[in-house]
Each structure stands twice: as structure tokens, then as C-alpha cells.
Amino acid sequence: MNPYKLAVVSAGLSVPSSTRLLADRLTAGAETALRERGATATADVVELRDHARALADNLLTGFPTGDLKAAVDAVAEADAVIAVTPIFNASYSGLFKTFFDVLDADALTGTPVLMGATGGTARHSLALEHALRPMFAYLRAAVVPTAVYASSEDWGTGAENDLTTRIARAAAELAATLTTTPPRTTDDPFTDPTPFTDLLGE
């Protein structure tokens, strides 16, 4: 069986960033969970920082250029998406939102999505539920129930229900969704147009 294609979107701004760190842990978790189900995966990482200018251009011109085009295609064609953002002002970062704003309206329809976020304190964790989940619901993505938030202290805490446990639970949910969801089929109106008599209602 062909490996599943994962697209990993990270909106971290610094290099290295804890957002990318979380994205990598989620990706590794998903690969492990898929292996346990007898499946394999390839991961295509999109660092949004690399596309910051192209994203602003895309807002103005309506089309992606250069490497951004490849990134947009990678996400639209992925079997599943892992999306991680820092939390700014109680929500996703502007760069993160911009990337999903420039995708085609139906690019993520039916795509399994695992959400993650990072922030300075755990008090911002529900931004995942209040900001990211509604956005992906609007895009008709199949978001898994567990979203993973990592605050600064999570990277050094080994308590019950720690970050590692949450990552494993979310990754298992993504693997389960991915392996039980039939592959997406898309109608291309350019190869298979609606006959004009149907449009005319005759």
C-alpha cells in the first residue's frame, strides 16, 4: 500500500521554534500510530515563515507564487494535515490564518486534521477549541477530537496526562480516522463540466 501523505503546517516564527518542535512530535506520533495499524506515511513540512511575503502577495493578487504554490498544493493533496500555531492574542497567529485563507474553499473538505498550538502558559489552551476548531469546521475538515496544546512548562513536566500522552492520544485518533476514511474524490469541473442544458434548466 502506498504511504499516506501527511502535510505538516507550522506557523512558528523563531528558528528553532517550540511550535515546530510540537509539530515534529505530532508527526512522529502519527507515524508511530500508523505503523501500529500496518500503514506508513511520508511527511511534507510547510514552515509558514518561509512563505510570509508570498502569503501577503497572495492576499493581494489572488494566486500563490513559487514555493508557496508547492506548499498550497502539498496541503490540498495531503491525506491528512497536522497544523500547529503559536497562540497570539487568544487566537491563531495571523500568518497561520492567512495560509488557510488562501487555500481553495474546498481544499480541506473531508481531510483528517490534527491541531496543535503552543504558548507561554496553559491559560491559552482553549484557543484551540474556540478559534482553530471552528475554522477547520468551516473548511469541512475532519478534525480529530484531541487537540494538543504545549505550554512552556509542558516541555519539562512528566506528570500523568503529560504532553507525551496527549500527543500519543491525538496521533492515535488521527491514524484511526485516516485508515478508516475512504480516499477523497474530487470532481473537476474543467474535465467534467455541467452540460449547458442542465444550467439552462431545459
Binding site: T61, F63, P189, F190, P193, F196, L199
Partner: peptide, 25 residues
């Protein structure tokens, strides 16, 4: 695409104002 279909149905012309987007579209 529906407008391209409309132009084709009637045998009318099709004007694609291509100046703002890449050619592939």
C-alpha cells in the same frame, strides 16, 4: 467553467482576461 460551457454551447466567443493570474489557470 460554466461560462466557458455557455460560450461553447452557443458557438459564441470566449474572452479570457488573463492579465492578473498565471497562465495554467
Amino acid at each position: 467553467p460554466e461560462i466557458a460551457e455557455q460560450a461553447a454551447y452557443y458557438g459564441d466567443g470566449f474572452f479570457a482576461n488573463n492579465i492578473f493570474w498565471p497562465k495554467e489557470h
